[in-house]
Amino acid sequence: MIAQTTVTVHDPTLRDGQHAVRHQLDAGQIHTYAAAVDAAGVPVVEVGHGNRLGASSLQVGRSRLSDDEMLATAREALTHSRLATLMLPGWATTADLRNAVRHGVDVVRVAAHCTEASVTERHLGVIRELGAEAQGVLLMSHMASPGELAEESALMVGYGALAVCIFDSAGHYLPGDLTAFTAPVDVPVAFHGHNNLGMAVANSVAAVEAGAHTIDACARGCGAGVGNTQLEVLVAVLERYGYRTGIDLRRLADAADLAERTLMPSPPTIDSTSLVSGLTGVFSGIKRPVLAAAESQGVHPWDLFVELGQRRVIAGQEDLIPDAARNLAVQGGGR
């Protein structure tokens, strides 16, 4: 048994979980779940469009509610938990940030691809000026070396980030990959796992053992693609290891049951597409365009994911998928 240590749990069910319902959560769903996890003592609750602040659009999907409506609804329900949101430069503007803070957001995470932290400088500075806690996020972190992650994390800290969150966006890591997890910076480090290889809880524990202060997790694992670290399981496992989260596990289990009944069509499962996306390090959130392109060109989705992995395709580069499928078809990569 390890010595008692406190871990902060950050719950993005009402943001990342929006992917599972095409960003269509309504005010009643948001308020009810937020109130349930607030009562359970979850420290931080992240809310917004699945693709982040300001992302509601024809390109990635319009949300049922505006950012302002989602944040105001959650803020009303949260009497103890801190309210967080996530933004990506290029989607959100400084005006969006000001609106978010005006609606009571306590924590704003600014995300960038793992080698492009420089794009976060302006927004991290604005968040600090507004009085909210600024955090940096490095997406698709498996695509950078530990040294590169250290350099990018240091940039974010220099811009004003009070914490840096490492996202395993493709669910590619194994626990042994996280042994040097917190080496990069002197601010708190967080980990956000995806469950493509069924390792999200184990990876999260490995991150904590390596020194991570905060772990992201969603009710029933609901999230983009195959889903995220399963919140109620994570808290139970951390408790078994002797870590303290300050969360009432029984109430959290009730909140997870509520989420399954009211927020999602069904809990996420690891299908063959999710599995190969984790193996190849490709974000499984692009599953739909991959399946459509594979069907159109008569190639196997597994082979198309392998091709995309070799091309190091990331979210936002969906326009490359049809070309990759056509190349496979020409090469004789049919079903």
Rank of each mutant, 00 (worst) to 15 (best):
residue 199 M to T: 11
residue 110 V to W: 07
residue 115 T to N: 10
residue 83 L to M: 04
residue 213 H to N: 01
residue 271 D to L: 01
residue 139 L to W: 02
residue 205 V to D: 00
residue 77 A to G: 11
residue 81 S to M: 04
residue 251 R to I: 01
residue 191 F to I: 06
residue 119 V to R: 14
residue 289 P to N: 04
residue 2 I to V: 14
residue 30 I to T: 02
residue 288 R to F: 05
residue 11 D to P: 10
residue 297 Q to K: 13
residue 133 E to R: 13
residue 328 L to A: 09
residue 288 R to L: 12
residue 239 E to K: 13
residue 70 M to D: 04
residue 16 D to T: 09
residue 38 D to V: 10
residue 56 S to M: 02
residue 297 Q to C: 11
residue 261 R to P: 00
residue 162 L to D: 13
residue 257 D to G: 07
residue 298 G to T: 11
residue 242 G to D: 12
residue 91 W to H: 13
residue 131 G to F: 07
residue 188 P to Y: 12
residue 290 V to K: 10
residue 123 H to R: 09
residue 164 V to H: 10
residue 15 R to K: 06
residue 48 G to K: 08
residue 137 V to I: 14
residue 229 T to Y: 08
residue 273 T to L: 15
residue 71 L to F: 12
residue 250 R to F: 02
residue 53 L to Y: 05
residue 107 V to N: 08
residue 100 A to L: 09
residue 222 C to M: 15
residue 331 Q to W: 06
residue 226 V to L: 03
residue 275 L to Y: 14
residue 334 G to Y: 03
residue 307 E to W: 03
residue 131 G to D: 02
residue 21 V to W: 09
residue 314 I to C: 01
residue 78 L to T: 09
residue 205 V to A: 00
residue 304 L to K: 09
residue 327 N to S: 12
residue 125 G to P: 03
residue 185 V to S: 09
residue 226 V to R: 03
residue 238 L to G: 05
residue 48 G to M: 04
residue 105 V to T: 09
residue 233 V to T: 15
residue 196 N to P: 00
residue 234 L to T: 05
residue 168 D to V: 05
residue 233 V to N: 05
residue 79 T to L: 05
residue 320 L to M: 14
residue 2 I to C: 02
residue 280 T to Y: 10
residue 25 L to D: 00
residue 169 S to N: 06
residue 240 R to F: 00
residue 182 T to Q: 07
residue 299 V to I: 08
residue 84 A to L: 02
residue 310 Q to R: 15
residue 178 L to G: 05
residue 157 V to P: 02
residue 266 S to M: 04
residue 78 L to C: 08
residue 35 A to N: 02
residue 310 Q to V: 04
residue 279 L to I: 15
residue 81 S to W: 10
residue 241 Y to N: 00
residue 131 G to L: 06
residue 188 P to V: 11
residue 105 V to R: 07
residue 44 V to D: 06
residue 302 W to D: 06
residue 205 V to P: 00
residue 41 G to S: 02
residue 163 A to V: 03
residue 293 A to Q: 08
residue 145 S to I: 05
residue 42 V to D: 08
residue 75 R to L: 01
residue 218 C to M: 03
